[in-house]
């Protein structure tokens, strides 16, 4: 093998047939570091309406409700992927989400 002049992603012989990728493998790429503001949820105000979950372009919100405990009735953002667009805060009918500046 000749040494690549730039950082090649894979050797020719290691490429998958047809230059394909595994489903959902963008999960390997954390987009969270794009964020300059972070959504913070006030769980007191949250009514578990799911609008943050519906309207997140990056699908980062997860329903934490365990089916029993009302205290788990909220949605949690996955900061590994949240890009900080602020749609969740904008659309939250109870204004339970605030966008806060990321600390560097």
């Amino acid at each position: 093998m000749t040494k690549p002049t730039i950082d090649a992603l894979a050797k020719v012989g290691d490429l998958p047939l047809g230059f394909t990728a595994k489903p959902g493998s963008t999960m390997d790429f954390k987009t969270g570091d794009w964020r300059s503001v972070r959504p913070i949820l006030d769980r007191e105000k949250c009514i578990h309406c799911a609008f943050c979950y519906y309207y997140c372009p990056d699908g980062v919100y997860k329903d934490m409700y365990d089916g029993k405990d009302d205290a788990t009735k909220y949605f949690q953002a996955d900061y590994d992927y949240c890009k900080g667009c602020g749609i969740c805060a904008q659309e939250c009918p109870k204004k339970a989400i605030t966008m806060t500046l990321e600390e560097v």
């Binding site: 963008t26 372009p57 990056d58 992927y81 667009c85």
Partner: peptide
């Protein structure tokens, strides 16, 4: 979701939503 996180759409992209 059938479209995984980690995609490179812009912040607040309505199309990817």
């Amino acid at each position: 979701d059938m479209l995984a996180s980690g995609h490179r759409a812009c912040q607040g992209c309505g199309e990817v939503l």
